Amino acid sequence: MAAGGDHGSPDSYRSPLASRYASPEMCFVFSDRYKFRTWRQLWLWLAEAEQTLGLPITDEQIQEMKSNLENIDFKMAAEEEKRLRHDVMAHVHTFGHCCPKAAGIIHLGATSCYVGDNTDLIILRNALDLLLPKLARVISRLADFAKERASLPTLGFTHFQPAQLTTVGKRCCLWIQDLCMDLQNLKRVRDDLRFRGVKGTTGTQASFLQLFEGDDHKVEQLDKMVTEKAGFKRAFIITGQTYTRKVDIEVLSVLASLGASVHKICTDIRLLANLKEMEEPFEKQQIGSSAMPYKRNPMRSERCCSLARHLMTLVMDPLQTASVQWFERTLDDSANRRICLAEAFLTADTILNTLQNISEGLVVYPKVIERRIRQELPFMATENIIMAMVKAGGSRQDCHEKIRVLSQQAASVVKQEGGDNDLIERIQVDAYFSPIHSQLDHLLDPSSFTGRASQQVQRFLEEEVYPLLKPYESVMKVKAELCL
């Protein structure tokens, strides 16, 4: 049975990233139509530049190519590739079939990587351009969430054990800070992308030097003109047959890092959902379990974690691919890159769409948070109580021993009897502590235990987050809708 299948058929496997999760716009960027249309555009740009620099290419040939950029006979191309065992030459023939007058000058002087690699770089750039505003929107939604809850005390956790208090907004800023680093890295790697350009079979530009009869300047002009037509500021000066596969490492490393950030955020949300302090959106008709109707599973956060793990592992592909590119190139890269580049971007696209949807509907339960604080705060307040007693004339050592005994009794009630923490009640009825009984409410005010959390939130948002989001103001209103 021949390899390949009808990918629109229910009898043929289709990647869930495309069929179930990723956005239509990201799927289109990695589609065959987008790819092969870009090949034709690159052939047109090459012909236009070659004509401008004096090669015998007519206006009629150029116009014929322009008129057929979208006229792609995919069936013919597939048949040609089956016959020739070469995808680029299959599309040269297919393009030439609908451009008979231009057929002889299509791909003039070029090698397969002229269309293959340059198209990949265009796709990487455009895919990054799709991700950047999506990530900015996630940051914006979380920034709104953090600002609104900047002063809401909550129990902090280290080692997932109760620690000092923080605020809900401050905790959210930990998430935002990681995503801001990801946004900066995505922008950097996007701006650092260079075009492969017009380089020939081993990167020496020998074929173009021959076409222009040894004119170095025209060869350099050709490279520059096509690079500018493709919208790049610069091209690699040095290439082998391909652009260095280190570029793929750079791009997928940034995406993998984004995956790590999203995994951490969504894990926190899942843990908070278990504590009943916070939940992701839950639709009115949504079913959490087929057997347990009360369940409210954090399905979206779980999906993000599941896909983020996949995204983090994909960076190993370009690392290994770059390491086995012998001399000017081997074909070890080809099949692998067809999979890992598309999957990385479709996965990143999915987790950003999902995280935006989550961040637009996060639900906080202040009463649950308050109750958990009441359970733990008495123990945390013991040092403040000791200091207040010393100020009232008591002995630190005597007070410490009193607190120690009462704390152990209260802990026994919590752990052995399943009761509430009654340390404060014990202190309130103990005559030894009568000098500070009137101060206990103040000493137990949760806001006095959150330090500068709310001020940190305000400063972080104003100095770091809002300036970073400013270039994306025009796209901030787009909502994230999930079908599944």
Rank of each mutant, 00 (worst) to 15 (best):
S9K: 11
P10K: 14
R14W: 13
S15A: 15
S19H: 15
E25S: 15
V29I: 07
F36G: 04
Q41C: 10
W45S: 10
A49M: 13
L53N: 07
Q61F: 03
Q63A: 01
E64F: 01
D87N: 01
A90V: 09
H91M: 11
V92D: 02
P100K: 01
G104C: 04
G116W: 04
R141L: 12
R141Q: 01
L142R: 07
L142I: 04
A150G: 05
A150W: 01
P153L: 06
T154R: 03
G156Y: 08
F157K: 14
F157R: 07
T167G: 00
I176D: 08
Q177K: 12
N185A: 12
T201E: 00
A206S: 14
E213C: 08
K218E: 01
L222C: 09
K229V: 15
A235P: 08
T239L: 14
Q241T: 00
Q241I: 03
V247C: 00
D248K: 15
V254C: 14
A260L: 02
V262L: 01
V262C: 13
T267V: 00
E277A: 06
F282C: 07
K284Q: 10
S290H: 08
A291V: 06
Y294S: 08
K295P: 13
N297R: 10
R303F: 07
A308K: 06
V315Y: 01
D317V: 07
Q320L: 04
E328C: 00
D332F: 11
F345R: 06
A348I: 04
D349I: 04
I351N: 00
L362N: 03
K367F: 15
P378A: 06
I386G: 11
C399F: 10
H400N: 09
E401V: 10
R404E: 06
V405C: 12
S407E: 15
S407A: 01
Q408H: 10
V413N: 15
V413D: 09
E425Y: 09
E425N: 14
R426K: 10
I427C: 14
P435Q: 11
I436G: 11
S438N: 14
D445G: 03
S447Q: 00
Q455K: 07
Q455P: 14
Q456R: 07
E463C: 04
V465C: 11
P467Y: 06
L469C: 03
P471S: 09
P471E: 00
M476V: 13
M476C: 12
V478A: 15
E481A: 15
